[in-house]
């Protein structure tokens, strides 16, 4: 299953809800303001590192670039995908849940 999240973890609890309810092995894609959750060195890094042991975590490249984040700023293990990669993730998984 693919879980998308679009909220900064500093604004709303959507990512934590996703991590509470997404089954291990799921794909999690961070889009829009949720890409801030992938920043290395933030207070959210421990939660993200823990999540990386259970999920494949992706970030949408255009959202990173727009926010001045390059791949070197990311917590290691988080993978950047473009819109085409987003479509591929939606195809690969049977269902998609958007945690807004």
């Amino acid at each position: 299953m693919l879980h998308t999240v679009n909220k900064s973890p500093f604004e709303k609890d959507s990512l934590n809800t996703c991590f509470r309810l997404a089954r291990p092995g799921s794909d999690v894609l961070l889009i829009e303001d949720a890409v801030y959750a992938a920043l290395a060195g933030s207070c959210f890094e421990p939660a993200m590192s823990e999540a990386l042991a259970r999920y494949s975590v992706f970030v949408l490249k255009a959202d990173l670039e727009a926010r001045g984040i390059d791949s070197g700023d990311l917590i290691s293990g988080v993978r950047a995908v473009d819109y085409s990669g987003f479509v591929d993730l939606a195809v690969k998984n049977d269902t998609v849940q958007s945690w807004l």
């Binding site: 679009n6 889009i31 829009e32 255009a62 819109y83 085409s84 987003f86 479509v87 939606a90 807004l100």
Partner: peptide
């Protein structure tokens, strides 16, 4: 699409996703 234009990014993201899916033959 649950948000209008300009106030939120949602419409842009949906549009980019839709275009990409179509370009890939979906």
């Amino acid at each position: 699409v649950n948000e209008g234009p300009y106030q939120h990014q949602a419409s842009y993201t949906a549009y980019r996703f839709t275009r990409s899916a179509l370009e890939k033959g979906h």
